Amino acid sequence: MALFPPDIESAAARIVAEFRVKSLMLVTAESCTGGLIAGALTEIAGSSTVVERGLVTYTNRAKVEILGVAQQTLDAFGAVSRETALEMATGALACSPASVSIAVTGIAGPGGGSAPKPVGLVHLAASARGGKTMHREMRYGDIGRSDVRLATLRTAFEMLLEIAEGKPQA
C-alpha cells in the first residue's frame, strides 16, 4: 500500500532523479506539512543521495532557534507570511550543506484562519545556494486539513522541479 497518492510519488521520483543527475542536495523546512515533503521524497529508493535533511519547525520558537527566522519578522508579519517563508528557506540553507531548500508555512485547518489569513493559505519558498529564491502564495481554500497538506506537497514539488530544470519563477 502506498503512503502517498500516485501523482505525488511520481513527482517525488522525478525530483530524486533530476536532483541526482544535477548533483543537488535538498533540505526541507516544514511547518504545516509536518515533514510530509521529506517523507514523500524518502519514500523513493536512493533518495539519500539528494535529501540532506528535513526540518520540522512547527512552532515560532523552532523557526527562530533552528532556522534563524527573526522574531521581528514573526511579530510584524506572522508565521504564515511571505517574509517568514523566505527566511525559513534561507535559514534552512544556512544550517545545512544542501544546495537547495524548500520551506512551507500555512494554515491547514480546520480552524486557525482569519479573514486576512484564511484556512488553506500557504506560503512556500525555495532557494538555491548562490541563486534565486522564489516564493508562492497559495490559497487552496478550506478543502480539509489533509487535502491542504497534499496540495502543498504538489506545489512544493513543482517549485523543486523548476529549480532542477534551471527555470525558477519568482
Rank of each mutant, 00 (worst) to 15 (best):
V100E: 05
V100S: 02
V100T: 11
S101R: 11
S101G: 07
S101L: 02
I102A: 10
A103L: 01
A103I: 00
V104C: 13
V104K: 06
V104E: 11
T105C: 02
T105K: 08
G106M: 03
I107G: 07
I107A: 05
I107F: 03
I107W: 02
A108S: 12
A108L: 01
A108G: 11
G109K: 03
G109S: 06
G109Q: 09
P110H: 05
P110A: 04
P110V: 02
G111N: 00
G111L: 00
G112A: 04
G112V: 08
G112P: 10
G113H: 00
S114M: 01
S114G: 10
S114E: 01
A115D: 09
P116Q: 04
P116I: 01
P116M: 00
K117L: 07
K117E: 07
P118S: 03
P118M: 03
V119M: 06
V119F: 04
G120V: 06
G120M: 07
L121E: 02
L121H: 02
L121V: 01
V122R: 08
H123K: 09
L124C: 09
L124F: 10
A125R: 07
A125S: 14
A125M: 03
A126N: 05
S127E: 11
S127F: 04
S127K: 12
A128G: 12
A128E: 04
A128P: 04
A128D: 02
R129P: 14
R129H: 13
G130T: 10
G131L: 07
K132L: 08
K132C: 06
K132I: 11
K132Q: 14
T133M: 11
T133R: 10
M134P: 01
M134I: 13
M134Y: 02
M134N: 12
H135T: 12
H135M: 06
H135C: 09
H135D: 01
R136A: 09
R136T: 01
R136S: 04
E137V: 08
M138E: 15
M138P: 09
M138Y: 02
M138N: 14
R139Q: 14
Y140S: 08
G141H: 03
D142A: 12
D142H: 13
I143H: 12
I143E: 08
I143V: 15
G144Y: 04
G144N: 05
R145T: 13
R145M: 14
S146T: 14
S146F: 03
D147P: 08
V148M: 13
V148A: 09
V148G: 12
V148S: 10
R149S: 10
R149L: 07
R149G: 09
R149Q: 15
L150N: 13
A151H: 09
A151D: 03
A151F: 00
A151R: 13
A151E: 08
T152I: 07
T152E: 12
L153T: 15
L153W: 08
R154D: 05
R154C: 12
R154V: 12
T155A: 15
T155P: 06
A156R: 02
A156T: 08
F157S: 15
F157N: 13
E158N: 10
E158T: 14
E158C: 13
E158I: 04
M159D: 07
M159C: 10
M159F: 09
M159N: 10
L160V: 00
L160C: 09
L161V: 11
L161C: 06
E162W: 02
E162I: 06
E162D: 15
